[in-house]
Design a protein around this nucleic acid. Structure first.
Length: 219
DNA sequence: TGCCAGGCCGGGT
DNA sequence: ACCCGGCATGGC
């Protein structure tokens, strides 16, 4: 079923080329900066960092917190996020001498556990780093993922992060490119067809394979 | 003009 | 074990 859903979305939308970034490091920063935040605001913050020539672990860690806060201000929650970025940088530098290559070589599942132990990195941020920056096969479960699968009746409304992730990963080949594209397609679907302000659910590409009774709402 | 966006933490029951 | 407030900006 999961592969079939994917086929359907891919046929409808094509490849999404999602989460573009010039480097894995930049993608990693974006994973924290985008927490509960519009991606457009994140891009402004990243542009500031790039203009200041700070898209490198050691260079960025040299920057005092107050200055970092100002640089990332457009991304919102800038005090919290400056702290979280520094926590991640400290982890990366202390443990891997600032080498992303060395860090990602640890692989799953150990690296995931290590990332989760960093204050400010939860499941979604960890998985975004692993998948989008590291190319490791950890499916990213976010608000979009949850909404699409719950509303269509493929998971419970009260399913937690790991239940959803297990459901997805156990039903799909272990393929980072597939996880990447799949998640991007879910976001595309949600934005194009399922926003309250844009209720075009009749044209939703997934309608033909709904379990029973069509889309539903929580509660 | 208010409401929302690709979370996570910490403190209170 | 849950529940909830706090964190902050720019776009529509």
């Amino acid at each position: 079923m999961l592969s079939k859903i994917y086929q359907c979305l891919f046929d409808a939308f094509g490849p999404q080329h999602w989460w573009p970034g010039d480097s894995p490091f930049e993608v990693m920063l974006g994973a924290i900066l985008t927490q509960n935040t519009n991606w457009q605001n994140v891009e402004r913050a990243i542009r500031n960092l790039r203009d200041a020539d700070l898209l490198e672990p050691h260079a960025l860690y040299e920057v005092p917190v107050e200055e970092l806060e100002q640089l990332i201000q457009p991304a919102g929650y800038f005090r919290v996020k400056a702290r979280r970025l520094r926590n991640l940088l400290e982890f990366l530098i202390e443990r891997y001498d600032g080498s992303l290559e060395a860090m990602f070589a640890v692989g799953l599942p150990d690296l995931r556990e290590q990332l989760l132990s960093v204050n400010g990195i939860g499941p979604e941020t960890a998985d975004s780093i692993l998948l989008y920056a590291g190319g490791l096969t950890s499916f990213v479960v976010d608000a979009y993922t949850y909404r699409v699968f719950s509303r269509h009746g493929w998971i419970d409304f009260d399913a937690d992060y790991h239940q959803i992730q297990d459901y997805l990963q156990s039903g799909l080949p272990q393929d980072a490119q597939l996880y990447n594209e799949y998640h991007a397609l879910l976001v595309r679907l949600e934005k194009d067809f399922c926003k309250k302000t844009n209720p075009k659910c009749k044209e939703c590409p997934l309608n033909k394979m709904l379990p029973k009774g069509g889309p539903r709402e929580p509660e």
